[in-house]
């Protein structure tokens, strides 16, 4: 179980670094959604299932859709 935890945190840090180094904003939004998904799994492992539920619904769902809507109104490349 601890190995799983460490793997999740490594994925989390990799996603966080990739978001700020990506020039394509649409790709950055998709990586940010996967960041939220790993964060939701970590909340679940930390025994906070209500926060995990909120993170999966807001972070991976609504925020991604709002960012994609804003990018469709503006430029895609940074």
């Amino acid at each position: 179980m601890q190995i799983f935890n460490v793997i999740l945190i490594i994925f989390l840090i990799a996603c966080a670094i990739a978001v700020e180094r990506t020039k394509d904003l649409l790709a950055a939004v998709i990586i940010f959604a996967s960041y939220s998904f790993f964060m939701a799994l970590l909340w679940l492992l930390l025994r906070a299932p209500d926060i995990a539920l909120t993170e999966a619904a807001i972070g991976a769902g609504v925020t991604t859709i709002l960012f994609v809507g804003v990018i469709s109104k503006t430029r895609r490349m940074e």
Partner: peptide
């Protein structure tokens, strides 16, 4: 687990899916 905020977000996401 859950509550007003999580359930409301899930309910809003369903209408957003219809819009998309």
């Amino acid at each position: 687990p859950g509550g007003g905020f999580s359930g409301g977000a899930v309910l809003g996401s369903s209408i957003i899916l219809i819009t998309l």
